[in-house]
Amino acid sequence: MSQTKLDISIAGENALIVYFGTEPNAQIAAQVSQTAEHLRQSMGDLLIDLVPSYASLLVIYNPLQTDHYSVRAQIRSATQNLLQSSEQQQGNLVSLPSYYSLESGPDLQRLADNASLSVEQVIEIHQQTEYRVYAIGFAPGFAYLGEVDERIAAPRLATPRQKVPRGAVAIADRQTAVYPAQSPGGWNLIGLCPEPMFDPSASPSMPVQVGDRVRFSAIDREQYLALGGVL
């Protein structure tokens, strides 16, 4: 890969963040995974954890046994021979049900108004796209899906909500996701999904993994409740 695009920045006392680019795409996603795999093997006990994301990799190291100069060198070495190929697994196609309504999606009306669309059109557009799982994080089972049609893209809330319900189907910029558990959050809520996104006793613990493709399909209130959804 072209090294000019690689940027390594300090994140904190024991963490460096590697930026592979500024826009998510399949090639960058492959480079992030390859680098993560390489560092996992080469750093051994010096590595505490890794957070791969769309176009970046957070590398958390043990600051009592190494320093940021040495970790930078390891990252450069890990990224030297990244494959050019953008070969990607096709991934599974996973269908997620969503109960879209003003009741289950408190930001739906505002999104529609801002886009000069009807609520029905916003719901329709959200289902038309086949999304890719770019990253998992924020919370257990929180899968970042992209890319949302730009007509219904919307910025995060200025002040995050204290409580977003489990199963909330949400949009932030051109990303969409299902909140796997109740948590604080700043995304725009447009519906509710009854399917558990994270179950620690199940194997695998999540219905999707990075690289999978996801489509949403609308269900009504009754179907949502019948599938175990809670209002």
Binding site: A15, V51, L57, I60, A158, T159
Partner: peptide
């Protein structure tokens, strides 16, 4: 800038939302 492409957050990170 108001937002960035989501990325890893380390312990102690100081994040500044739009408010």
């Amino acid at each position: 800038i108001g937002g960035i492409l989501s990325e890893g957050i380390c312990l102690g990170a100081i994040q500044v939302p739009a408010d």
